[in-house]
Design a protein around this nucleic acid. Structure first.
Length: 281
DNA sequence: AGCCAGGGTCTGC
DNA sequence: GCAGACCATGGC
């Protein structure tokens, strides 16, 4: 974790000297949908069947009610804290567009979320907006997920969801995406290695593998690979990024940065969404 | 009120 | 291959 210090304090774990990391930038940049701001510089959410509250002061991050073991097993990988972002940002900064995007939000990290949750989250995201997507996922978890602590629900398993009907899914109000969710759940249940397979496949094959799911096209597949499998090369092209590519990279994205194109995409996405005249947020 | 949302499918050329 | 209608729903 290059120079990051970790220590236990009561029931909390504290990381200090964490660079290139900002909670709000990371948790509110459109890659995850289950975190909410509970206070200034403090967020709560559920991932990997754990409820976590986490807060930040400068380069110090406090993980509440957890342990060193959970940090190693879950939260350090989840927040991608074992990757050297400083060296990546240095590479990116040679590109003037990326340099500007990184200056705007240098604390974004690409999360390593659970593949199943990520799959559903981005199936739900199609022709949808982020605010409503959060609501749909919230209702899915409240309706079908295990209550792991008071009023906090884990993400429901594919097995459980696979034997629901569209009518039983109605409370989620997922619209036409309900049938896509069921198809994904059934595929993940019928083939227990369905959602581990992408780890062992090259990008293009992994993308095609995920596109077997109804409702998963190239954009959603790349989101799943990027945010769920840590495939930083996956490059989701939504309407914003397509516009940005035409404007800033008419000759194509720099060849030497392609292994990390997905991370670059995340900096760009956040930057253009908050620096476009029609911006509503 | 009406537009549009981090797209994908289906149909018709 | 590629354009265009259509999809459910609700935030704004």
């Amino acid at each position: 974790m290059n120079d990051v210090k970790m220590k236990e304090k009561g029931h909390d774990v504290i990381l200090s000297d964490v660079r290139c990391f900002d909670l709000e930038q990371t948790l509110d940049c459109g890659q995850s949908f289950r975190w909410h701001k509970v206070d200034e510089n403090q967020f709560s959410g559920v991932a990997y069947h754990k409820f976590l509250t986490v807060s930040q002061t400068d380069t110090t991050i406090c993980f509440h009610n957890t342990s060193l073991e959970e940090m190693e097993q879950i939260w350090i990988p989840y927040f991608d804290l074992d990757r050297n972002y400083q060296s990546l940002q240095k590479k990116f900064a040679k590109d003037s567009v990326l340099k500007q995007a990184i200056q705007f939000a240098p604390g974004i990290r690409v999360l390593r979320q659970e593949p199943w949750e990520t799959t559903v989250s981005f199936i739900f995201s199609q022709n949808n907006n982020i605010a409503r997507n959060k609501g749909m996922i919230q209702r899915l978890c409240e309706s079908f997920g295990e209550e792991i602590s008071p009023s906090q629900f884990a993400f429901p398993s594919p097995q459980l969801l696979s034997h629901q009907t569209l009518e039983e899914l109605a409370p989620v109000r997922a619209g036409f995406r309900g049938k896509y969710l069921l198809d994904a759940a059934q595929k993940a249940t019928a083939d227990t290695s369905f959602l581990t397979k992408p780890y062992s496949l090259p990008l293009e094959e992994a993308r095609n593998w995920l596109m077997q799911i109804k409702g998963v096209g190239p954009k959603v597949a790349d989101c799943i690979l990027l945010y769920g499998f840590g495939q930083l090369e996956a490059f989701p092209r939504d309407v914003w990024i397509i516009r940005a590519m035409e404007t800033f990279y008419p000759q194509g994205f720099p060849e030497n940065l392609k292994p990390w194109a997905g991370l670059a995409q995340q900096y760009l996405f956040h930057y253009i969404r908050h620096n476009t005249p029609t911006e509503k947020n």
